[in-house]
């Protein structure tokens, strides 16, 4: 247990020294909120079914934070650790290798939570953000979403050997995901064709799930061809499949 805590301490410190992590997790969502909140305010809007723009936007921004930690940060760190043979070096210590993975998952989860809290507090202070949901339900939705996106990151880390390739792949997945999942641009504005593409993006379901549980304790609410049960089913399926493949494929080092 001591070793796990020490591992997390190191990983956490290192994450906080990484500009990309800091910017996209902690600053970027609030910046977006300032811009869009400044444009549209938080008065009830017919476009969002009577909810304020900020009230809809803040839970969506969870998607930005989850994705940067899960799709960029998690795999890039693991691939870097392997590329630099840090994992190999650690294999020759009494440290349990699985702690390295657990530490990455936990640390990225903590940063995701901090990132979300910052934008939420920001929203509350400046735009009088409302929460309409059930707290417990929201937390469960948050965890399911985070875990599923993190599992995709773990999958990337299992298949890509080289840090530079991993950075490219993570960017190629991350940025389109950001704009096609409803995390930044509302799905409500999208034409049918683009909505179809959005439905192929796992993050869409994570954003939808978080938004639902934020805006209503009545979980059947808001239908854009998505539903709570589909969200949960798909996210859980992604998590299970990605983790199983990753666990069998992940290499600590290459011979």
């Amino acid at each position: 247990m001591k070793m796990l805590i020490e591992t997390m301490k190191v990983d956490f410190k290192l994450q906080l020294r990484d500009f990309v992590v800091l910017f996209y997790s902690l600053i970027f969502p609030s910046l977006m909120l300032l811009i869009f909140g400044g444009m549209y305010g938080n008065l009830p809007s017919p476009f969002y079914g009577g909810f304020g723009t900020v009230d809809v936007m803040v839970p969506s921004f969870v998607g930005i934070v989850v994705a940067v930690n899960g799709i960029m940060n998690l795999p890039l760190t693991l691939v870097e650790y392997r590329d630099k043979k840090i994992l190999k070096r650690l294999m020759a210590t009494p440290l349990k290798p699985v702690y390295i993975i657990i530490s990455q998952l936990v640390v990225n989860l903590i940063i995701t939570i901090i990132g979300f809290l910052i934008v939420a507090v920001f929203g509350k202070l400046i735009f009088n953000l409302h929460f309409y949901g059930n707290v417990l339900l929201f937390i469960v939705a948050f965890l399911i979403s985070t875990l599923s996106i993190f599992s995709i990151g773990f999958l990337i880390a299992s298949f890509i050997r080289n840090s530079r390739v991993a950075t490219t792949v993570a960017n190629i997945i991350y940025f389109p995901m950001l704009f096609l999942s409803g995390a930044t641009l509302p799905l409500e504005t999208m034409p049918k064709f683009m909505l179809g593409i959005a439905k192929a993006v796992p993050l869409t379901y994570a954003v939808d799930l978080i938004k639902r549980t934020w805006l209503s304790s009545d979980i059947a609410w808001l239908d854009m061809g998505l539903s709570l049960s589909i969200d949960i089913f798909l996210l859980c399926a992604v998590t299970v499949v990605c983790f199983i493949i990753s666990i069998t494929q992940f290499k600590w080092y290459y011979d």
Binding site: V10, K13, L14, R17, D18, E80, Y81, K84, K85, I86, K88, R89, A92
Partner: peptide
């Protein structure tokens, strides 16, 4: 036992 690996590097910012 303990080892020094050929060409390990550590985390840049540790």
């Amino acid at each position: 036992i303990s080892i020094q690996l050929q060409e390990t590097s550590y985390q840049d910012k540790i």
